[in-house]
Amino acid sequence: MAKLRVAVLISGGGSNLQALLDMCTAEGSPAEIVRVISNVPDAYGLERAKEAGVSTTVINHKDYDGRESFEEALHQVLDSERVQLVCLAGFMRLLTDTFVQKWKDRLINIHPALLPSFKGLHTHERAIEEGVKFHGATVHFVRPAMDEGPIIVQACVPVLPNDTPEELGKRVLAQEHKIYPLALKLIAERKVRVSGEKVVYNGVDNLMNSAINPEG
């Protein structure tokens, strides 16, 4: 089976990108990152990609009149690389409904919360303020509404009594680095599909159970 052709969109340091690169460069990986695209010219994630031998492109949103023209340039690069799946990894731009629909079920994102709770920003601060006992991260297919879409994988961590947002965020990020490569692997191996607005799994129960144990 040919490897799934993947592009990763970034805006910053790219720690989740690194986790995806590590998975895709491992022997026998079912996926291949063919392009890393950043809207920020000096994003450190571009260096991570170059070190892994992956082609990079900068599409600076400031060079375009609006989101539509920016996304058209983005789509042209994705199309030229015959990309089959796009991973958002700290990509700090809101995408239009048109772009999301064009890439429906071929566009995934990771969010630092247990969706549908705590959509948007400052998730760790809000989790502590609300007094929830568990927090975590979610990988999901992207839909036009912010932080919505069929959930592929989640991981949870306990919220400790004296947690700061920084401490909680570090534990959540460690889980992000596990579940994002897992989600990509499941998609590349055709072990997940979208039915309605839910993800259906094919023979991955044991794998999923091992992935979502707190602090696993």
Rank of each mutant, 00 (worst) to 15 (best):
A2G: 09
L4F: 01
V6P: 09
V6F: 10
V6T: 13
A7M: 07
A7N: 12
S11I: 05
G12H: 09
G12F: 06
S15C: 05
Q18Y: 07
Q18T: 12
A19W: 07
D22F: 06
E27S: 14
S29M: 07
I33M: 07
S38E: 14
N39P: 01
P41M: 03
D42F: 13
L46Y: 08
R48C: 00
R48E: 01
A49L: 04
A52N: 05
V54C: 03
S55D: 11
S55P: 02
I59T: 04
N60A: 14
K62N: 15
D63S: 14
D65K: 11
E72L: 13
E72C: 10
A73E: 15
L74K: 08
D79P: 00
R82A: 15
V83F: 01
L85R: 02
L85Y: 01
C87W: 04
A89F: 07
G90L: 06
L94H: 00
T98P: 00
K104W: 02
D105S: 13
H111F: 06
L114T: 05
L114I: 12
L115T: 08
L121A: 14
T123K: 00
E125F: 05
R126T: 04
E129M: 11
G131L: 14
G131I: 15
G131T: 10
F134G: 00
H135S: 15
G149D: 12
P150F: 04
A155F: 03
V157H: 05
P158K: 12
P161T: 09
D163C: 07
P165I: 02
E166S: 02
L168G: 13
V172A: 01
V172Y: 10
V172C: 03
L173I: 01
L173R: 03
E176I: 02
H177R: 05
H177G: 01
K178S: 07
I179Q: 03
I179T: 08
Y180S: 01
K185W: 10
A188L: 00
G196D: 08
V199G: 00
N209R: 15
A211L: 02
